[in-house]
Amino acid sequence: MTGKAPLIAEHVVQVRATPAAVWDVLTRAANIREWDDVPESFTADTLAAGSVLEWEGYAVLKVVEFDVPRSLRMAYHSPRWERPVDGIEYAYLLSPAASGCELTLRVGDWALAPDGNARDYFDASVDFVADAAAKIKEMSERR
């Protein structure tokens, strides 16, 4: 533990679509490309437990939880760091709601980043979760 306050970006959005429709937007590579970047080296059609997205020399995301259609968690690692850091993740959580579902996006805990750039990572993540949530919502509701 770092003793620092957690730096976790979170955004919650209500989606008027089934969890299955949102899950498709979250896990099908063609859909992900509409709301986020997918490395060219990732050639599978969909994410699955154990999938790895690697932006060579920059970042690695590994799917560590794949609970259809409830939670998708990906552990983050930067190859520029001397050692792997546990506790930094991209999480997409779905729960039923009266008119569809609730989607929560969480990215961090950047306080664990060992390179002194925690605040920069956090600030970028705040923008990312808001933008991604809006795009995922819009895509899911079109289905």
Rank of each mutant, 00 (worst) to 15 (best):
M1K: 10
T2E: 13
G3V: 05
K4T: 05
A5G: 08
A5N: 13
I8K: 06
A9K: 01
E10A: 08
H11R: 10
H11W: 02
H11Q: 09
V12Y: 07
V12C: 12
V13I: 09
V13L: 08
V15H: 08
V15E: 00
R16C: 12
R16L: 05
A17T: 00
A20C: 13
A20E: 08
A20M: 11
V22Q: 01
W23A: 00
D24T: 11
D24A: 09
D24W: 02
V25F: 09
V25I: 05
L26N: 14
L26T: 03
T27C: 10
A30Y: 07
I32D: 09
I32T: 11
R33N: 08
E34T: 13
E34G: 15
W35L: 12
W35I: 02
D36W: 08
D36E: 15
D36G: 13
F42Y: 11
T43Q: 04
A44Y: 12
A49Y: 11
G50W: 07
G50Q: 11
G50M: 06
S51L: 00
S51D: 10
V52R: 05
G57C: 09
V60N: 13
L61K: 10
L61R: 05
L61W: 11
V64Q: 09
V64L: 01
F66P: 06
D67T: 02
D67G: 12
V68F: 14
P69T: 10
P69I: 00
P69G: 01
S71W: 14
S71T: 03
A75Q: 06
H77I: 04
H77F: 13
H77N: 12
P79E: 04
P79G: 06
R80I: 13
E82L: 14
R83H: 13
R83L: 15
R83V: 10
P84F: 12
P84M: 07
V85D: 08
V85E: 00
G87H: 07
G87S: 03
I88H: 03
E89P: 13
Y90F: 15
Y90G: 06
A91I: 14
A91S: 12
L94H: 00
L94S: 04
S95N: 10
S95I: 08
P96H: 12
P96L: 06
A97P: 10
A97K: 02
A97T: 15
S99N: 14
G100L: 01
C101H: 04
T104G: 15
L105C: 06
R106G: 05
V107C: 07
V107G: 07
G108Q: 05
D109C: 09
D109W: 11
W110S: 01
A111F: 06
L112I: 09
P114W: 01
G116D: 01
G116K: 06
N117F: 14
N117T: 14
D120Y: 03
Y121E: 01
F122P: 00
F122A: 00
D123C: 09
D127G: 15
D127I: 08
D131E: 07
D131I: 12
A132V: 08
A132Q: 03
A133K: 04
A133T: 04
A133D: 08
K135M: 04
I136V: 03
E138C: 09
E138Q: 15
M139H: 14
M139P: 06
S140E: 00
E141K: 01
E141L: 02
R143I: 05
R143M: 08
